[in-house]
């Protein structure tokens, strides 16, 4: 009797969860099935899992052929961007943003969490207010401002470093707020004990705070990476030289006004989804506490 009701309960649960799985996977399977469609037509005519004559041709095209839409000189194929070059640019911007966000964010959040000092409240409120300011109309002044700062013989605006800095400013307010809340939950006695034992403040920070705050630091890295990986509005506006273009820009450029090469488009989209998904899986066990523990305390 009991065994039977338990079996029934599990059957119901699995039915429910498999239903959820199907609805989660449906759009992803749709992407795959178009990407491997050999005809490279706009859209398939049949709802099939594996279209007839399926091949990885569009993946090969995306990976190894130069992209005709992003070229310094459209007449010369060797000046066009390839997947490899786009990937390097994207990784540079994404990890740059993540690195800036975590280093600058942790440093400022540590000060706000651990020191009582003049201007603390004002500073903290200032960063939180920046979190809520909508940034759409600021791109115009930002364009001018970043154009003023010279980096060697070119404007900071048109470099990947400038782009990473611009993205960092978008992720910093949340990072500082979240990290500060998380640091607050780590007892100060732990550091005090280390200081008494002769450690320097820097040592105490790296040996005690960093390992204990890993979840919040991981979330900061993840959000910074995602910002750099998917943003394309500022990138289109700021970058001039196609050799600096990123994957997100390549994807956006394939969305034509009238037609889109859907097979290659989805092949690129799927390839582009792999790094964030991997990063998500790698950091998954940190995400929950990293995002909520600090938030509760505010």
């Amino acid at each position: 009797m009991n065994k039977r009701s338990d079996f029934l309960r599990k059957l119901l649960l699995h039915t429910f969860l498999i239903g959820v799985t199907i609805s989660v996977l449906f759009p992803i399977v749709w992407m795959v099935s178009i990407a491997i469609d050999p005809r490279n037509i706009d859209k398939p005519l049949e709802l099939t899992l594996i279209p007839s004559g399926a091949s990885f041709e569009s993946f090969r095209k995306v990976l190894f052929e130069p992209n005709p839409l992003l070229c310094t000189n459209p007449a010369v194929a060797s000046t066009c961007m390839t997947f490899g070059k786009l990937l390097v640019n994207s990784l540079y911007v994404s990890f740059g943003t993540a690195l800036f966000a975590v280093v600058l964010g942790a440093s400022a959040a540590y000060a706000f969490s651990r020191f009582r000092f003049i201007g603390r409240q004002v500073g903290l409120l200032g960063f939180i207010a920046l979190l809520m300011l909508p940034a759409t109309a600021t791109v115009t002044p930002l364009y001018v401002l970043l154009g003023q700062i010279r980096l060697g013989d070119e404007a900071l605006r048109s470099t990947l470093l400038g782009l990473a800095i611009a993205y960092t400013s978008g992720t910093l307010p949340f990072a500082i707020w979240n990290l500060k809340g998380y640091f607050d939950t780590i007892p100060a006695e732990l550091e005090e004990a280390a200081l008494i034992d002769g450690a320097s403040v820097t040592q105490a920070f790296f040996r005690i705070i960093v390992p204990l705050a890993l979840p919040a630091l991981a979330v900061t890295v993840l959000l910074g990476f995602m910002a750099g990986w998917t943003e394309f509005v500022m990138a289109w506006l700021f970058l001039e030289d196609p050799s600096r273009f990123t994957l997100a820009m390549a994807l956006r450029s394939m969305q034509g006004q009238y037609t889109t090469p859907w097979s290659t488009f989805f092949a690129l989209a799927l390839l582009m989804s792999i790094p964030p998904v991997l990063l998500f899986f790698a950091l998954q066990r940190y995400i929950v506490s990293g995002l909520t523990v600090g938030g509760v305390k505010g």
């Binding site: 800036f100 280093v103 600058l104 964010g105 440093s107 400022a108 540590y110 000060a111 706000f112 020191f115 009582r116 000092f117 003049i118 201007g119 603390r120 500073g123 960063f127 920046l130 300011l133 940034a135 109309a137 600021t138 002044p141 930002l142 401002l145 970043l146 800095i165 611009a166 960092t168 400013s169 910093l172 307010p173 500082i176």
Partner: peptide, 30 residues
């Protein structure tokens, strides 16, 4: 308190400079 203030703002300085130039100034301009 004074030395704490100095130390704290030193830690905040890099993030502060970035936010000042990349967010606050454009916001004021806006």
């Amino acid at each position: 308190l004074f030395s704490n203030t100095l130390r704290a703002w030193l830690y905040i300085l890099p993030a502060g400079i970035l936010m000042l130039f990349i967010t606050l100034l454009p916001q004021l301009y806006q």
